[in-house]
């Protein structure tokens, strides 16, 4: 580690840091959930993040996603890579501008310790979760369901079903034409990121 890197991690718990630096975590989708998860995990110092999303940034994304006005029109994964490098240049980021499907998911994410599902659409969530359970039954997947609206902190929860973890309220539907709001989607994104640490650091 060079001096700057040592300083970056000087406030981190030395007991857990080696495990965090060795970890590889996948993030599928980098909208409101995924961009927030990536920023948190970069700050934590996860050694390598593997990130995929097909989309480009629109101005309406900025109400909740970790991008800036001068990045509108850029592919989300490219803009996120710029932002993550500005936050923590000491981790490795592998980005893919691609639409994820049953075929490419097992290839792109084959080396991750944990995958985090961060899609917007329920059908994509289902596709990823079922692909993951089928291909990597022993590797954890942390998904989100029910992040829309505001308030109601008390009904947000995490549920474990074998190696599948669900964060959110599992009920609040997206209203037609409305996006989730920054606080609640941010809370759930950070519940997912927090759970990544829990699973990586089990037994320490």
């Amino acid at each position: 580690m060079n001096q700057k890197e040592t300083q970056f991690f000087s406030k981190h718990d030395p007991k857990i840091l080696p495990k965090v630096r060795k970890a590889t975590v996948g993030i599928a989708g980098v909208g409101g959930l995924g961009s927030t998860i990536a920023v948190s995990l970069a700050r934590v110092g996860i050694g390598k993040l593997i990130i995929a999303d097909f989309d480009k940034i629109e101005i309406s994304n900025l109400n909740r996603q970790q991008y800036f006005t001068d990045q509108i029109g850029k592919p989300k994964v490219i803009a996120l890579l710029e932002n993550l490098k500005k936050i923590n240049p000491f981790s490795e980021y592998q980005v893919h501008q691609i639409t994820l499907n049953e075929k490419n998911i097992p290839v792109i994410y084959k080396d991750v310790d944990i995958i985090v599902e961060a899609f917007d659409k329920a059908a994509m969530k289902k596709m990823l979760i079922e692909t993951w359970i089928t291909n990597f039954p022993d590797k954890p997947i942390i998904a989100a369901s029910g992040v829309a609206g505001y308030g109601r902190n008390e009904i947000l929860h995490t549920r474990k079903v074998d190696n599948l973890y669900i964060c959110g309220d599992e009920e609040t539907e997206l209203q037609e034409g409305m996006s989730p709001m920054a606080p609640r989607v941010g809370i759930v994104a950070n519940m997912q990121a927090n759970l990544v640490l829990d699973l990586l650091l089990k037994g320490i």
């Binding site: 289902k126 979760i129 829309a148 079903v161 599948l164 599992e170 009920e171 609040t172 997206l174």
Partner: peptide, 25 residues
């Protein structure tokens, strides 16, 4: 899998987990 939802018969004493996926993220 979804295509089995109408045909798969659930055995007695089964432990079933249903995870409701809603859009938003």
């Amino acid at each position: 899998r979804s295509f089995e939802y109408g045909t798969k018969v659930v055995p007695k004493n089964a432990k079933i987990n249903v995870i409701h996926l809603v859009s938003g993220g």
